[in-house]
C-alpha cells in the first residue's frame, strides 16, 4: 500500500515559506497552484520549475542540479510543457530549496487556474526553418502574463514556423511564425528550384519558361521558396505571427483555429491582453471551462470575434473558424 497521507494534517501541510501569498497551514490545491504537486508518497512533493520556452541557462541548471542532489530524487523529470520538475521533495525542505534556487534567480512554476509558463521551439535564432523569434516572445509572455489568474488553466505556445513543433493549435493561445512570399520576375532565371522546394504544391513551373506559377491558397507561409531561390527572386512580402485560439489537449482535445495572420511582435501583448480580458468576462457566466470549450458556443465565439474586431479590425481574418472537438476516444 502506498501511504498517501502527510504527517501533519489531512490535505494541509505547515509550510515555512510563502506559497501563493500564504504561509503556515496550506492546502494541497494552493500548493499545486504554486508549482508544488503532491505525490502519492507520504510527505513528498514534485516541485515544478519555471523554464519559459524550455530554455534553461547553464548557471541556473548548475544550481538546479546542486539543489536536486540535496533535496530531491536522483533524477529530474522534463515535463510535457518543457519545465524541469524535481520529484521526491519533502515539504519540510520547501523553504531551503526555494531560497537556494533564488540564488540563481530560478523560480518555481505555477499550476492551476492561471496563465502557465509559455512553451516555445528554438525559433529563428539558430533553427534554419525558423521565421519568428519564439524565445524572445516566450520571455515577453513570461514577464507580462505569467500566473495571471484565469477561469481555468491557460496555456500559450510559440512555434517559429508552420512545422509547428510547439503545437499552437493545441494550446489555449498559440502563435506560429509565417512568411508570405512575393516573386520578382526580373530576377528569375526559370531554374525550377522553387517548385521542387515547395512541399505544398503551391508552386508549379511553367513548362516553357521554367518560371513559377503560384497558387496562393495552397501556401503555408514556410518560406522554403525564399530560402531555396538562387537569385533571390522569391522575397519576403510580410512576416509575422499566425494566431490560433481555443486549442487544448487532455481528455477531450479541441483544435484551436486561426483568427489572425502576420501579426507583429509588438502587437502580440495587446492581443493576449484582449483575449485574457474577454476570457475573464466569459468565465463569469460560463464557469470553470477552458477557453476552447467556451468558444465552441456560437454566441460566445461571436462575442469574442466582434470584440477583437473593434480593437484589431483588419488584422483579424474576415471569417475565422470556431475551435472544434478533436474526437480521439470514440471515432
Amino acid at each position: 500500500m502506498i501511504d498517501k497521507s502527510v504527517k501533519d494534517k489531512s490535505n494541509k501541510v505547515k509550510v515555512d515559506t510563502e506559497v501563493e501569498g500564504k504561509t503556515g497551514d496550506i492546502d494541497f490545491n494552493t500548493l499545486k497552484s504554486g508549482g508544488l504537486i503532491k505525490q502519492t508518497q507520504k510527505d513528498l512533493f514534485t516541485v515544478r520549475l519555471r523554464c519559459p520556452g524550455g530554455r534553461v541557462p547553464l548557471s541556473k541548471l548548475e544550481k538546479i542540479l546542486e539543489v536536486a542532489k540535496k533535496y530531491a530524487g536522483d533524477y529530474v523529470h522534463l515535463s510535457v510543457r518543457q519545465s524541469i520538475e524535481l520529484p521526491y521533495v519533502d515539504y519540510h525542505d520547501f523553504k531551503k530549496l526555494n531560497e537556494e534556487l533564488s540564488e540563481a534567480d530560478q523560480k518555481i512554476a505555477s499550476c492551476g487556474r492561471r496563465v502557465r509558463v509559455p512553451t516555445a521551439c528554438s525559433g529563428c535564432e539558430y533553427n534554419p526553418n525558423g521565421i519568428m523569434d519564439t524565445q524572445k516572445m516566450a520571455e515577453v509572455v513570461n514577464e507580462k502574463f505569467f500566473a495571471h489568474p484565469m477561469p481555468h488553466k491557460f496555456k500559450i505556445s510559440f512555434s517559429g514556423c508552420p512545422i509547428d513543433c510547439a503545437r499552437t493549435s493545441e494550446n489555449d493561445l498559440g502563435f506560429q511564425g509565417a512568411v508570405e512570399p512575393k516573386w520578382v520576375d526580373e530576377l528569375c532565371i526559370g531554374c525550377r528550384i522553387c517548385a521542387s522546394a515547395c512541399r505544398e504544391g503551391a508552386i508549379e513551373s511553367d513548362p516553357e519558361s521554367g518560371k513559377p506559377v503560384f497558387y496562393a491558397q495552397k501556401c503555408l507561409y514556410c518560406g522554403d521558396c525564399i530560402r531555396s531561390c538562387p537569385t533571390d527572386s522569391w522575397q519576403e512580402q510580410r512576416k509575422g505571427w499566425i494566431i490560433r485560439v481555443g486549442g487544448k489537449h487532455g481528455r477531450h482535445p479541441v483544435v484551436g483555429c486561426k483568427i489572425a495572420e502576420f501579426v507583429s511582435d509588438e502587437d502580440i501583448p495587446e492581443f493576449i491582453e484582449a483575449i485574457i480580458k474577454w476570457y475573464e468576462k466569459a468565465g463569469k457566466t460560463c464557469g470553470t471551462l477552458r477557453i476552447g470549450d467556451i468558444l465552441r458556443m456560437p454566441e460566445q465565439w461571436n462575442d469574442l470575434i466582434s470584440e477583437l474586431r473593434i480593437k484589431f479590425d483588419k488584422k483579424l481574418l474576415p471569417d475565422p473558424k470556431m475551435p472544434y472537438k478533436n474526437e480521439i476516444h470514440f471515432e
Partner: peptide, 25 residues
C-alpha cells in the same frame, strides 16, 4: 535526385554562401 533532396540541398548551398548558377533537369 529530385524530391526531398531538391527541397533541401539548394537552400543549404545558398545558406553556405555559394551561388547556384545553372539548374538543368
Amino acid at each position: 535526385d529530385e524530391g526531398e533532396t531538391m527541397q533541401n540541398v539548394p537552400r543549404s548551398i545558398k545558406k553556405e554562401g555559394h551561388k547556384i548558377v545553372k539548374v538543368e533537369k
